[in-house]
Structure formats: structure tokens, C-alpha cells
């Protein structure tokens, strides 16, 4: 009798525990994904009636200069954002010592990650200001003319990425610092006996042991790069003339900004971004699946 009740309880219990979380997730995450896919098939200004137009939004998208600019910038973001990983590793190696006050140093180096991207964006806009920004004050000091980073299509994306790398590097640094704590001293010793030094030591002995940290660092950096919205909204609003847009920002611009009334078109952009992200989701889940099995 008692055993039987237990049995039933064990069957029902997980669903009861899952219910509230799943319900919320369903309403706010799962269903909206499909709703957006649906909206992307309509011409809709968000106010009046929707008109079904099939794949027209996508057709238009593939003939839209701004879409390709955004896509190109997304790729630049993805590639350059990866610099946060070696940079974070470098700082982690640099700080991984035991001297007086090192804990405080580690915390302060981590600082940029804790503050909002809005603040980071403001700080860097100011750093780049062509008339009095610190960067140009320094350039002028060395006799170089000011560069209006955020107003020049050649530099603007790189300028924003540099701002983004600041907190992202701090993030990677902390991942590696934790990873370094777990590095096996015996293997280091063994490596030393094999006469491994400097780069060789790093490459063949230390890095393999940091693999979990590197994996997480790659995952968070890719997400960070594809989510790049805040900095662009704060620093340039996509400008000059749309040259610093990425898909995430372009979508917002089309659907919600002052002049944006194209919900369907915006949704189509979001779907493309989602599909790109899906590649990483698949990559991550496969890896997780293997770990779970192994």
C-alpha cells in the first residue's frame, strides 16, 4: 500500500516540480519563437491588420544591402570577439601568482564585467570623442590627427568591438583563473622534467588541462558576440549611415525604433539570427549529450 503510493508519487512528482518553470518557459520563450516565425510571413506594421505575404520578407531580405552589412558585421564580431579568450588567458596567467593583495587585484581586473554595458558604452563613446576623448588626446600627444572612430565607417565596428572586449576579456579571465586553480602541479612538474618551458609548457601541459574553461569561454563569447545589441544602441544607434548595424540591432530598428513599423520584416531578420544561433545550440547540446553519456 505504502510502496504503491510512493511509486505513484515518484511518477507525478517530477511533473509537479517542473510545471511552474515549464509553463513560464513555454509562454515566454518557446511559443514566441514560433509566433515570430509566423509573423515573419506577414506584412504587419504592428497596428493594423496583418497581410500574409509568404516568403516575401525573406526574398526582400536577401536583396537588402543593410542585411548584408549587418551579417558582415556579425561575422566580424564573432571573429574578433574570440580575442577575449587568449587575452583573458594572458591576464589570468599574469595574475595567477601569490603575492600580497593579489585577490584584490583579481577582483579589480574583473570589474568591467560587473558593470552594465550601457555604462561601458557611455564610457567608450567618451573615450573615442573626436574633440576631447582620451584616445584622441593621446593620439594628438604623439602628433597623430584625431580619429572620429564612431563616425567613420571604417573603424566604427572595430571601435565598438573593442569596447565589448573589455568586459568579455574580464569574463574569460575569471574562467581561466578558476581553471588554473585546478591544474595538476604534478603534471607541471612532469612537464618540467621533460624540459618543457614557456610556450611548449603552456601548449602541451597547461592548456589541455584548461579545456573545460576554454569550452565555456568559447560558448559565452559566441553568445556575447551574437547578442551584441546594447553597445551598438548606446554608442552609435547603428550609424554612421547604418554601417555598424548587426542583425540584432537591425531587427530592433525595423520593428520598434522611431521609424520602424515593419514587424514582419523584423521577425524575418530575427529568424535568420536564430538559425545562425541554432548552429551553436546544436554544437553545445551535442557536446553536452556526449558528456552526459560518457
Amino acid at each position: 500500500m505504502n510502496a504503491r503510493r510512493k511509486f505513484d508519487q515518484k511518477k507525478i512528482a517530477p511533473w509537479l516540480f517542473l510545471a511552474p518553470g515549464m509553463l513560464m518557459f513555454l509562454i515566454y520563450v518557446i511559443i514566441p519563437v514560433f509566433q515570430s516565425m509566423n509573423i515573419s510571413l506577414y506584412d504587419w506594421d504592428g497596428l493594423g491588420e496583418k497581410t500574409f505575404i509568404g516568403m516575401d520578407n525573406y526574398v526582400e531580405l536577401f536583396d537588402d544591402e543593410a542585411f548584408y552589412t549587418s551579417l558582415k558585421n556579425n561575422i566580424i564580431w564573432l571573429v574578433l570577439y574570440m580575442l577575449a579568450i587568449p587575452a583573458g588567458l594572458f591576464i589570468a596567467l599574469f595574475l595567477n601568482q601569490t603575492v600580497f593583495g593579489i585577490r584584490l587585484y583579481k577582483s579589480l581586473f574583473f570589474f568591467p564585467f560587473v558593470i552594465s554595458q550601457v555604462v561601458v558604452g557611455l564610457v567608450f563613446s567618451w573615450f573615442y570623442d573626436p574633440s576631447f576623448g582620451l584616445m584622441n588626446v593621446m593620439l594628438n600627444f604623439f602628433g597623430i590627427d584625431s580619429i572620429a572612430v564612431l563616425a567613420d565607417e571604417r573603424y566604427v565596428t572595430y571601435g565598438i568591438i573593442a569596447a565589448g572586449l573589455w568586459p568579455q576579456t574580464a569574463y574569460c579571465m575569471i574562467l581561466y583563473l578558476t581553471g588554473l586553480n585546478a591544474v595538476d602541479p604534478e603534471q607541471i612538474e612532469a612537464g618540467r622534467l621533460d624540459n618543457a618551458k614557456g610556450w611548449r609548457m603552456l601548449w602541451y601541459v597547461v592548456l589541455p588541462q584548461l579545456k573545460p574553461a576554454t569550452f565555456i569561454a568559447i560558448v559565452v563569447t559566441v553568445i556575447g558576440a551574437l547578442r551584441s545589441f546594447d553597445l551598438i544602441a548606446i554608442m552609435t544607434a547603428g550609424g554612421p549611415w547604418g554601417s555598424s548595424r548587426v542583425l540584432a540591432f537591425y531587427m530592433y530598428e525595423q520593428a520598434f525604433s522611431e521609424y520602424g513599423f515593419r514587424m514582419g520584416y523584423g521577425a524575418a531578420i530575427a529568424v535568420v539570427l536564430f538559425l545562425i544561433m541554432l548552429v551553436y545550440i546544436a554544437f553545445f547540446l551535442t557536446k553536452m549529450y556526449r558528456d552526459e553519456r560518457g
Binding site: 520563450v29 509573423i39 551574437l226 514587424m263 523584423g266
Partner: peptide, 27 residues
């Protein structure tokens, strides 16, 4: 479905906000 549900939660993490934006706002 244990694994399936778990993976859906995990995958949801990576979803770009923009694809949720219009429906969530309307909702």
C-alpha cells in the same frame, strides 16, 4: 523526456532576444 526537457531549457538560453521581442511585447 527528462533529457529532452533539460535540453530545451538549455537551448532556450542561447536564443537571440530579438526573436522573442515582438510576441513578448504584444503579450
Amino acid at each position: 523526456f527528462n533529457m529532452t526537457i533539460f535540453f530545451i531549457f538549455v537551448a532556450g538560453n542561447f536564443i537571440p532576444f530579438q526573436i522573442l521581442m515582438v510576441p513578448v511585447r504584444d503579450f
